[in-house]
Simulated assay, not measured.
Amino acid sequence: MALEKQEQQQHVVAVPLPASGHLNPLMHFCKLLAKKQSDIIITAFDAADAPPLRILSLSRHGPPITCLLSDFNITFPTQDVVDKLRIPRIVLYPCCASRLLFTHYLTLGELVSLEEVKEATTATGVEMRKLFRELVGLPTLRNNDIPHFSQQHFIWVLQAGLVDDIDYSSSAAQIVSESDVKGLVISWAPQQQFLAHPSVGGFLTHCGWNSTSESIANGVPMLCWPYFADQPLNARFIVDEWKVGLRVKRSKEDTGLIERGDIEKVIRALMEGPKGKLVRENATKLKERCGQRSLENGSSHRKLKALMES
Rank of each mutant, 00 (worst) to 15 (best):
S187F: 02
D165M: 10
D180Y: 09
L162P: 01
N234T: 05
T140M: 12
L158D: 02
D165V: 05
L141D: 13
I216F: 08
W156V: 12
G202K: 03
V200G: 02
M222Y: 07
S177H: 13
A235T: 07
V176N: 02
G219L: 03
L223P: 04
C207I: 00
H148Y: 04
P226D: 05
Y168D: 01
L195D: 11
Y168Q: 13
H206Y: 07
Q152C: 14
Q174Y: 07
G208V: 04
A229E: 08
Q152G: 06
C207Q: 01
N210W: 02
A229K: 12
A196E: 06
L184M: 14
A172L: 02
V157L: 07
H148D: 10
V220Y: 00
V163I: 15
D230R: 01
S199A: 15
S177I: 08
Q231C: 08
I175C: 05
I146A: 09
V157Q: 06
A196T: 02
F149R: 11
S187I: 01
E214G: 06
L158H: 11
T212Q: 02
Q152R: 14
T205M: 05
S177K: 13
D145W: 09
S170M: 11
T140Q: 13
G201C: 02
N144V: 09
Q174W: 04
D180T: 07
H206C: 08
W209A: 03
G201I: 01
W225P: 11
M222S: 10
L158S: 14
P232M: 11
Q231R: 07
S187M: 07
V200Y: 00
Q231Y: 03
Q193G: 03
N218C: 12
S199R: 08
A217L: 12
A172M: 03
F228G: 00
Q159P: 00
I216W: 04
R236W: 09
D164Y: 10
F194I: 15
S187A: 15
W188Y: 13
D167S: 10
C207H: 00
Q159F: 11
A229N: 09
A235M: 05
